[in-house]
Nucleic acid binder design. Structure first.
Length: 421
RNA sequence: GUGGCCAUAGCUCAAUAGGCAGAGCACCUGGUUGUGGCCCAGGAGGUUACGGGUUCAAGUCCCGUUGGCCACCCCA
């Protein structure tokens, strides 16, 4: 039994996984470039206050419990980031990015940390591809963020991607709506299960995405946020839906959809994957017009999305989608004798410099054993240099599949291989 | 934080009714001096997750802990 192992809820990503990761992250970066998003990286550690600022009490308690928090050596309260957006907003304000031409379009990739109980598709450290569009109120901005996510899934080979969307209103229309919602459930208070009684108190919107049978029955007649939007919010939501339809992006209005962070206004959305079990959200996002202000910047509208990389990888596997293979060495240089080894070292170096994935047989073992290594490394060619070859400035190239061997001039070797890969 | 199931070699799994911890794959070495894959021989690898208890005897039964999986919660 190993002396040391990963902490609960943490995972090693082994080489076998990386074709998937490179596939997903490669596509994500390519797409971000194509959509005109600039990369930003913010620290993994921030002041704890940044993550807890302006949150409603209920959310704050939950987040607080899930936060990896420490006291720094100088007594500062710091936390590992549980989400990207807060840090990016902090950077936006700190560096005066509001003076940049609007919209400011940013993306980031990196690890996030939440002290959760691990489960299918849920870890204590996970990786997100995150995109934010700042300084634009146009519903077309909401659309663009959703397109970015949509096309990432599509280009990775996902079938039947569909958005769940909802509008949860704004500071003008949400409070009266929540009041109506609370009134409705209080009229049926005795029928509510304990969990939902608690939710009603702490975060009433959360009652909407309950899994309790009894509450689900009540939800049929519960007031929906989309029916209580102010005029601006209603127009925004309608316009967004018009855009989604125009672009043939499948979606469902889901009046039960709410989000964990309560800085969201108007648009909220998720994409679900059936094959993932209970933790089925492939991505989640929405509009957060008040957020920049809450970290001390000027009033700036914004939309963003967080896309879970581990869940995409799980989902790719579940769907049997194969990522492209990563390059493995094409040539291995084998040798016999110290002089020949020098030549093999030089050949390997020249091949690599020319862009050909190449490897050297380490050690000074028998040719037989070196060939075994070449075989296990899965190379296409073994380039054999022994005293004999060296004397004539040639290399014996063995095709590892057919077993055929030819002699190639040592100086022509790089070109010879390049012509064949 | 609550609950259910689970834990034997790197991996997949065996071990009658409590009675000497094993196999396949993978790994390493060898099967002669310049030729891999297949085959053959050998080797290494385990405090049976950890700690207690019951018993003449525990991988096996009991308790606890830790970890994994799954669900609640929450969300990517």
């Amino acid at each position: 039994m190993p002396k040391f192992q990963t902490l609960k809820g943490f995972k090693d990503v082994l080489p076998e996984e990386f074709p998937y990761w490179r596939f997903v992250l490669g596509k994500a970066v390519e797409l971000a470039d194509r959509y005109g998003y600039q990369q930003i990286d913010t620290p993994v550690l921030e002041e704890t206050r940044l993550f807890l600022r302006g949150l409603q009490e209920g959310t704050a308690i939950i987040l607080d419990k899930e936060l990896y928090s420490f006291e720094d050596l100088d007594g500062t309260h710091i936390s590992l980031r549980p989400e990207f957006t807060a840090g990016i907003m902090r950077a936006y304000v700190q560096h005066g990015m509001h003076t940049r031409p609007k919209p400011v379009k940013l993306f980031a990739i990196g690890p996030l940390f939440r002290h959760e109980k691990p489960q299918a598709g849920r870890f204590r450290q996970h990786t997100q591809f995150n995109a934010e569009l700042l300084g634009e109120e146009d519903p077309a901005a909401d659309l663009e963020i959703m397109q970015l996510a949509y096309n990432l899934y599509k280009e990775l080979g996902f079938q039947n991607i569909s958005f769940q969307i909802n509008s949860i209103g704004c500071p003008v229309c949400r409070p009266p709506y929540i009041e109506k919602l609370v009134d409705y459930f209080e009229a049926h208070y005795d029928e509510l299960p304990e969990v939902d009684k608690r939710r009603l108190k702490v975060n009433p919107l959360r009652v909407l995405d309950t899994k309790e049978e009894a509450t689900l029955a009540l939800l049929v007649d519960a007031p929906k946020s989309v029916d209580h939007l102010c005029e601006d919010c209603a127009t925004h939501f309608d316009t967004l839906q018009g855009y989604l339809q125009a672009l043939d992006m499948p979606y469902q209005v889901n009046f039960r959809l709410v989000r964990g962070f309560d800085y969201y206004v108007r648009t909220v959305f998720e994409v679900w994957a059936e094959e993932l079990g209970a933790q089925n959200a492939l991505c989640g996002g929405g509009r957060y017009d008040g957020l920049v202000e809450s970290v001390g910047g000027p009033r700036t509208p914004g939309v963003g999305v967080g896309i879970g990389v581990e869940r995409i990888v799980l989902s790719l596997k579940a769907q049997g989608i194969q990522p492209p293979e990563l390059p493995s060495p094409v040539v291995m240089a084998l040798h016999r004798g110290p002089e020949a080894k020098l030549a093999a070292l030089k050949l390997t170096d020249a091949l690599r410099a020319a862009g050909v994935p190449a490897a050297l047989a380490f050690g000074d073992r028998s040719l037989k054993s070196q060939l075994k290594s070449a075989n296990k490394a899965g190379v296409r060619y073994a380039a054999i240099i022994a005293e004999d070859e060296l004397a004539r400035s040639v290399v014996t190239v063995r095709d590892m599949e057919s077993g055929e061997q030819v002699e190639v001039g040592l100086d022509e070797m790089v070109e010879w291989v390049k012509a064949r890969v």
